[in-house]
Design a protein around this nucleic acid. Structure first.
Lengths: 147, 147
DNA sequence: TAAGATTGAGCCGTCAATCTTT
DNA sequence: AAAGATTGACGGCTCAATCTTA
């Protein structure tokens, strides 16, 4: 593929890493989601919200704080909580209903197990360090990294 | 958070890497998407399909082959092509209309530039190697890695 | 007013059911 | 029958507009 005013194209090593990153992101995410639904009956989005809710005293959190904890914007929280309310996982104004608490207790260990077996078990200790440092650095430079 | 039959929990280093991965995936993706729309007027999904289409002889590809190239399932291709047809970016039965070709030529260099400045410019050469190898290994173990 | 919360529109993705074609 | 392609239903996400409330 050629373009006028050729940009700094990706070389072979970079293209390999980028393809790896894209593929990893796609497949790791979809496989984790699949197992979460299968083993715990929860979607990734539901799991994400139920973790901080189940840890909160009384299972109660303000939507704003919940949003900060998981790094979601307001409208996303609102839509997701709306869907979960329909499923009976949470109650607005009085969060983390019993169903939600039961669901997260059932799903969490298997999710951690999945993350471990699909990701960490394949990495060496050194790689965990290098990747951790690299990710933090890239993340810190991203426009919306603050707050 | 405590559970009956405590699973192999994540230690501090692992949790740090996992949080980094989750955050990186989220923010890098949304920032790249934002720039693609802003600079090239294309969504990520549109860009993904237009690259192989613009490279194909005559700008023509069978839906099946296009799907294989980008690793998407049939229905996803079908839905996306339907949306792009509405925008006049492609024509079914006669792919990669001129609008699509113009769009990808305009958008691609800036997208590569964005990937470079947000990701590669923050990494050392050694890190590119370590990450590339690690990603490939994790990817190869994923259930749907074949074909 | 400013921050929090909600809502509607529209794009994106998966799944399951279906139609088509070989 | 088997593979390709489409479709509808639904969950999920973002953006912009709006409502609410300290």
């Amino acid at each position: 593929m050629l373009f006028v005013g050729e940009p700094r194209w990706l070389d072979e090593r970079e293209a390999r890493l980028w393809q790896g990153y894209i593929g990893l992101k796609l497949q790791l995410e979809s496989e984790l989601e699949r197992r979460l639904v299968r083993d715990g009956g929860l979607s990734g989005a539901e799991f994400t919200l139920l973790v901080p809710l189940s840890e909160a005293p009384g299972g109660l959190l303000r939507a704003r704080d919940l949003g900060r904890m998981v790094g979601w914007e307001r409208s996303r929280i609102s839509h997701q909580v709306g869907r979960m309310e329909k499923r009976g996982l949470v109650v607005r104004e009085e969060c983390a209903a019993d169903a939600g608490r039961a669901a997260i207790v059932g799903a969490a260990p298997q999710h951690v197990e999945a993350v471990r077996s699909l990701f960490f078990d394949v990495l060496t200790d050194d790689e965990v360090d290098v990747l951790g440092a690299a990710f933090e650095r890239v993340l810190a430079r991203l426009p919306i990294a603050e707050e």
